[in-house]
Nucleic acid binder design. Structure first.
Length: 312
DNA sequence: CCAATTTGACCTGC
DNA sequence: GCAGGTCAAATTGG
């Protein structure tokens, strides 16, 4: 009874801490970069922050053993039809719910077309496309490229809005467990991905306007992009954003995704309720209730918690 | 040759 | 039975 709740909370904690650690690391790198000589007191602070995160994570690692990471979805997600589902390891947390999903709407325009909504810094592999009843455009199904190599179960669906063809509704499901590996991706590699994505966007858009060659804008540094590119569909409060908004898949370290505004967290259960209506009361307690059950795979030995080398 | 995409078939829940 | 989601063989591209 309680253990389930505990599991969720542990998951949330892990997510938050991991995210925090990554951000701190980015900050450190940033400092490193800008003042090549020495980090100064800022650097020291950042190091301390980092080590605090490390400690906290390792503590959690001890007590929680990532129980809820036991995979549970009835079938899907696991793709291997009869393998995963039959495994006996849904020990501690029997995740009854399917994985959480959250949607995001992104508008593509001339400015952002280069990377579009399809680049969130992770590499995705398309595994399907489907015509959806009542929708003008087919829905694309993507899973993390590292699904096999790292067991990352993150998936996303990309649906182009039929109301505004420039808007894409992206539904994410599952958490990236390959986050760090993804961050480590070489810039060139990423650029390559971006190109692929760009092609894709163009294809689906079929908008062949002149090539607005602002490609050097692909890596937009630290300022917020034209915010018109993002469409908030949910009246999240500030505290919601601060509190719960931080799925690790968002804004990976190199945040090339200049764009990212998180929109709609929702569980599968609530999925049937209208999207645009005021969100349920959950919103008030982001961590406790928004409950990001990240089903993702096993965190396993592979996941380099507490392995400092990994972050160098 | 390998990895990614395409696409029809298949599976599952409603 | 239908619609959405996924698989996997075939195809394409680097």
């Amino acid at each position: 009874m309680e253990s389930e709740k505990d599991c969720d909370q542990n998951n949330n904690l892990i997510i938050e801490l991991t995210q925090g650690r990554e951000l701190a690391k980015q900050l450190r790198d940033h400092l490193n970069h800008s003042s090549s000589s020495s980090l100064g007191s800022g650097g020291i602070l950042v190091d301390r922050i980092l080590s605090s995160y490390e400690k906290a994570l390792s503590m959690l690692n001890f007590t929680a053993e990532f129980p809820s990471l036991a995979y549970s979805s009835p079938r899907s997600e696991g793709s291997e039809r009869n393998t995963i589902a039959d495994q006996p390891h849904k020990s501690v947390c029997k995740k009854r719910k399917a994985s959480k999903r959250w949607t995001e709407q992104v508008r593509i325009d001339q400015e952002t077309r280069g990377e579009g909504p399809l680049d969130d810094g992770y590499s995705w592999r398309k595994y399907g496309q489907k015509d959806i009843l009542g929708a003008k455009f087919p829905r694309g199904y993507y899973r993390c490229t590292h699904r096999n190599s790292q067991g990352c179960l993150a998936i996303k669906q990309v649906q182009r809005s039929d109301v505004d063809p420039l808007v894409y509704e992206i539904t994410y499901r599952g958490m990236h467990t390959c986050m760090l590996a993804s961050n480590a991706m070489q810039p060139s590699e990423k650029r390559h991905k971006l190109c692929t994505m760009e092609q894709e966007v163009k294809q689906s858009l079929e908008v062949k306007s002149e090539e607005q060659d602002n490609k050097e804008q692909i890596f937009p540094s630290f300022t917020f992009p034209q915010c018109e590119s993002y469409i908030f569909t949910n009246p999240l409060t500030e505290s919601d954003l601060i509190g719960s908004f931080s799925p690790p898949f968002l804004s990976p370290a190199t945040s090339e995704s200049n764009l990212f505004s998180l929109i709609n967290f929702q569980s599968l259960e609530s999925d049937r309720t209208e999207r645009l209506s005021t969100p349920p009361s959950v919103i008030n307690s982001p961590i406790g209730d928004v409950d990001f059950s990240f089903d993702p795979v096993e965190f396993d030995p592979n996941f380099p918690f507490g392995n400092p080398d990994f972050f160098v």
